[in-house]
Amino acid sequence: MRAAAGARPIAPARIGAGRWLVAAGLLLVAVLAGLLAGSVPLDPVDVVRALADRLPLITVEHGLDEVQTRLLFELRMPRVVMGGLVGAVLAVAGAGYQGVFRNPLADPYLLGVAAGAGLGATAVIGTGAGPAAIPIVAFVGGMAAVGATYVLSRTVGGRTTTSLILAGVAVAAFATAIQTFLLQRSYETLREVYSWILGRLVTVGWAEVWSLLPYALLASSVLVALRRLLDVLGLGDEEAVGLGVNVTGVRRLVVVAATLATAAAVSVSGLIGFVGIIVPHIIRMLTGWSYRVIVPLSLVVGATFLIVADLGARTLVAPAELPIGVVTAFIGAPFFLLVLRTTRGSS
């Protein structure tokens, strides 16, 4: 006879309908708030009706005039969608880095990836090459940075949590120094690059959304597909090899995908820090350890988080605007210290 406890089902960690509903509900609220906030008030009911009207096969009457409709669909909507996309990929990239480096502090910003990508993007802007080259050169810069960080951390201090972050800080500082040097030499692009460095979603239109979308889809699909293997990597390289996993191959693939995501996000929105550390950690605190849960939820929660942060950037000092990177750093820096404290306490 089986004991009552024996009937307990054996099931892989999963997100579950309840969590999906909550996450999707919050995202929806954030999107609506993002669409409604601004100097021109829009009626919420009309906005919802206008959105429904855009769905295929449905016609819904709404009370927005032509100017308001254009404001909604040409200005606010791309900004909200872009915020969501950037937040989603930065968060999922952070989760990916944390998985492969087995380091809860790994983040596109702290690993120097964002700075490397920023350097690449600055070089492109400085030379006046077309905007299509930005994500590609940014990706090259990001890969060089994450590679340098990894090698540096292994040569100086083994594989401790902090040595990776310290190496990331050094690489980021170096990349930023070269970036500043490039800026000094091309004074006319200074303003453009500077506003971009602080992170912005201001001048976003649908064109930027479409340029980010393919990279975002590709990178997130890879990370979502490999989420179960990130749990296996949690056992250490040797045991993962013992379980038949090509550890080097998986690690490379995840790093490439996460760096591609970061570079694409950085190319359109500049340096927005800490999303990759805040979002996966909130999810981890609420749902537990498994990347099978953390990776997919990071996409949704990351999108929500950055839409809300952008809302803050637009409204806190209205009619002026804060750079969104300032808002995320404002929340992220204390959060980082909190995570540092808890991880150091437990190790």
Partner: peptide, 14 residues
């Protein structure tokens, strides 16, 4: 392995 790495929060079934 001699010293298996046991992720703290992972449960036994998983």
């Amino acid at each position: 392995p001699q010293r298996p790495l046991l992720p703290d929060e992972m449960n036994v079934a998983n």
